[in-house]
Write a protein that binds this DNA or RNA. Structure first.
Lengths: 156, 156
DNA sequence: CTCAATGCAAAGTATTTGCACGCTC
DNA sequence: GAGCGTGCAAATACTTTGCATTGAG
């Protein structure tokens, strides 16, 4: 599986095993905690190094969702997809559009670039967060109204 | 120009002036050096803070080109565009596709997201770097050939 | 037995924050 | 004059690196 001059160790087995099972976009730290639950002696560094190796080997992909950290997803599930990220709750939707891919390849060809990879993220507000936002706006505006009523004269 | 409770200072004037003139994607540090050339007393922190303000005010956009740092571009030139980045030399091509935008909006609508922004980057190898890479490959293969010829027997 | 892998601590990098002072408004 | 803006140093957050030890091949 990862034979390319690489050694197989108990740590790597465990990390890869845990990692490939996940559906989420794990940060190195997330994975560290998950793995540590099964082997408390594991070190952060090993996780970082293993994720890097997996990425280089094409088994994992780096994903940046907007918080500072690098997240990873296993490549064994879907071949490629992009992400739509809710800026309210962080929820992500994965999507793939062959049509977009085609357009991107066209753009690359136009400028004589050999496309290797792309990163496409849509940032927006999901339905739930929109609803929540509207509710909050209602509450706030009613509060403001009260304030105006109570202190309008005092303010002047 | 930046009246929204913000004060106008000599530092901000200078930073904004230098920044809006540039065509490049400047990192905070890049801009720091450029500004420092004209006012050696300026501090890094002020650059960070001003770029953040400009971004919040919609006058600048953050761009991540793949090296660790956050880069910025003025918004006064082109309304919106995406980037294609050469992984060899870092050269970038800016492009915009209304068709892609349309597709993205469709995807967002499909999942009931209200799209706010997107980030689209194509990573690839530009024509120059491809040429250079090929030339290097030729040299290396000829070197290898020599080695084989000279040491083939010794190696066995 | 050799050299890659590990874990710890320390170092790096990029950015942010606390704070005293100075300058706009 | 009040409070935002500035510059410095220190703090933070994430990731990488140096090094001695362990373990796989």
């Amino acid at each position: 599986m990862q034979r390319a001059g690489l050694k197989r160790t108990a740590q790597r087995d465990l990390i890869v095993d845990v990692f490939l099972r996940t559906e989420d976009h794990l940060s190195s730290e997330d994975l560290y905690h998950l793995v540590k639950a099964q082997d408390p002696t594991i070190g952060q560094t090993t996780i970082y190094r293993t994720l890097k190796l997996l990425t280089e080997a094409g088994l994992a992909s780096e994903v940046r969702l907007g918080d500072g950290r690098t997240r990873y997803e296993p490549n064994n599930k879907f071949p490629h997809h992009d992400h739509m990220i809710c800026t309210g709750c962080g929820r992500t939707v994965e999507f793939f559009s062959a049509e977009i891919k085609r357009l991107l390849d066209g753009i690359a060809a136009e400028h004589e670039y050999e496309p290797k990879q792309h990163s496409l993220r849509i940032f927006g507000v999901c339905a739930d967060c929109r609803r929540e936002r509207n509710e909050r706006a209602e509450i706030e505006s009613s509060v403001e109204t009260h304030v105006h009523l109570d202190y309008a004269r005092a303010a002047k």
